[in-house]
Design a protein around this nucleic acid. Structure first.
Lengths: 126, 126
DNA sequence: CGGTATCCGCTTCGATACTG
DNA sequence: CAGTATCGAAGCGGATACCG
């Protein structure tokens, strides 16, 4: 069994360590949204661009490149004309999303209450 | 039961929605690290500054202000001289961290493998 | 001790145009 | 269709100084 406290002892959260690097990739503004979309299954570039509302081509490209390099997302380029490229989670990516989705869903369900706390919202959930 | 797909249908991830706002607060570079530290229990300002290695006073201040406003962190200012201020998770915050810690631990354990996948990394810090 | 205020560099990001 | 290249604007974040 591994706890946060134990990991911290070993320096797993030091300033330039790999944990922080992965955290930055995976918990980034767009990284989270792309990963959530891919947790539904395989998607093409154009689908991702449409489904992750607001993302620019530049950010989609760099986010995907990062996640592919990290072995979290798999890129499959079919040799057709016109090009056809698909993205899906690797097994590691599915493992990751098994842990992330409960968190995302918890946040999504309570988000309205949370941002409303300081501004008079509906009474508290929970 | 709530799934990501269902939430998405309802617009829970639209461009300027509260879900994205909370996501940005909670999954931010420093937000994650501050929350992990507070998951150990109550900490003073100075302790947080030391334990979250690399954070500046400005970022610690703004991160804490954000999390307090979101009702995730509780701030307790003792009326002593010199001042003594403590931060801890609220019940909502503990709920959140119950979901986030498994994710963080998964990442921390595998981080070295992940960043090494594409680049054959330099040996680990620590 | 526990912050806030100000300045400012430097990365990040988005928009647009272009390419295989 | 699936990207890359370039550029300008925005804001993140650090350093410093100062206040309650």
């Amino acid at each position: 069994m591994v706890s946060y406290a134990e990991l911290r002892e070993t320096g797993a959260f030091a300033p330039a360590c790999s944990t922080r690097v992965v955290l930055d990739h995976v918990m980034s503004r767009w990284g989270v949204l792309v990963l959530c979309t891919l947790s539904d299954g395989t998607h093409r570039w154009g689908e991702l661009r449409r489904e992750v509302e607001g993302i620019s081509e530049k950010m989609l490209a760099s986010t995907l490149r990062q996640l592919v390099a990290d072995g979290i997302v798999h890129r499959e380029s079919l040799p057709t004309v016109p090009p056809h490229v698909e993205y899906c989670l690797t097994e590691r990516g599915r493992d990751l999303m098994d842990r992330m989705l409960p968190l995302i869903e918890w946040i999504a369900v309570r988000a309205d209450d949370i941002v409303g706390v300081g501004s008079r919202a509906t009474p508290n959930a929970r």
